[in-house]
Write a protein that binds this DNA or RNA. Structure first.
Lengths: 192, 192
DNA sequence: TTTTACACTTAAACCAGGTGAAGAAAACCG
DNA sequence: CGGTTTTCTTCACCTGGTTTAAGTGTAAAA
């Protein structure tokens, strides 16, 4: 369980046994059933969560009741709303388990404490957010410059595993199109 | 000149004179004329740049030759391509001065060194990227959930100063619409 | 002073993608 | 297994936004 987390962290910074012990003491295990919520829009996000098994989606429900998927979090990735977590503001996201999920969660005071005790972990989370920022910026540009059909095929290539696991309507939502239109795309350009 | 940078940093973390001296020794002053490039698509981004005066745009030119603006960097903000800067890969962005610009620039080895000597500055840049990630994520959701006309008015409200400084076509590009359509929007819903 | 260049507007034809409704196919659950 | 719910598809029609192309205003270059 915790060794998965250690493995994940040590891909970016190396830790002594003692340092990792300090860290793991601050995480707790949490399980969710399919369709359970880790966070509901309007609530404050109290935890950053490392996904050990399963898959979650983070999505915003707009005033017309339409969902827009920001990201999927699968094994060895993180789930949470950074804005709400840091600033203690009501979140504008739902985070929902798409499958039974096992998480290692940490709250904000503990994470702060961890940064003090083990500065290497501040570096780790800095790198994590740096990569997330890079990926999100690329997504903005792709959404602006690439038509939906191509965005769909790029998504398929980049996430062949995900497509088997999650409903198409959620992929459509992630891509910024309707399920109806995605269906049309699949009919027109099959294969690939 | 450098006091502007210090002021900016101390909004997030406080520094001793000595700590700031170590930092400022690693930055150098750079000036650009209007229309000069800080970075050209395809080159590796060697510097993170703090904007003292002026305004720049970061944009990607797609295979059809169309520009897509990722961000504007004005006074007391930063310019650079994080992906290219960190990973030393050819950048997919141009960064161009829209006005005469004065910058304080730092290269990657120096920044790394700075993180070692003054850990508080690692915290500072972590917070900076954290905020950028939050803002960029919100932009993804807004682009997916809000129609162009509303996005335009939100942009006006949020950046009243910018609109006076930069061409409308660049705002259109930032919003993900054509200048022609932006012009139509302005005609239909004037005022505000 | 004239020329060139670029930003902005207008209008009309066009298309990528959305809407609503309704059925077929899967997936879920007792 | 059988019934319910959810997902996926199809079709007919609609709209927000693009494209192309022409015209105007302005500022800088020559």
């Amino acid at each position: 369980m915790f060794d998965v987390l250690r493995n994940h962290i040590e891909k970016k910074v190396s830790l002594t046994d003692d340092e990792f012990a300090q860290a793991s003491a601050l995480f707790t295990i949490r399980k969710l059933k399919k369709k359970q919520f880790l966070l509901q829009q309007g609530d404050v996000c109290r935890y950053e969560s490392f996904v050990v098994t399963g898959c979650l989606k983070s999505y915003h429900t707009d005033d017309q009741g339409v969902d827009h998927v920001l990201r999927f979090s699968v094994e060895y990735h993180w789930a949470g709303d950074l804005d709400s977590f840091i600033n203690k503001t009501p979140s504008s996201f739902n985070i929902e388990a798409m499958e039974p999920v096992t998480l290692l969660v940490i709250d904000e005071p503990s994470l702060d404490q961890l940064y003090q005790c083990v500065p290497k972990l501040e570096t780790f989370f800095r790198l994590l957010n740096q990569n997330a920022l890079i990926a999100t910026s690329q997504r903005v540009i792709k959404n602006l410059s690439i038509p939906a059909s191509e965005r769909y095929h790029l998504f398929l290539q980049a996430n062949p595993h995900l497509v088997q696991r999650i409903p198409l309507k959620d992929i459509a939502s992630y891509l910024g199109i309707t399920p109806v239109f995605l269906s049309k795309l699949r009919r027109e350009k099959p294969g690939f």
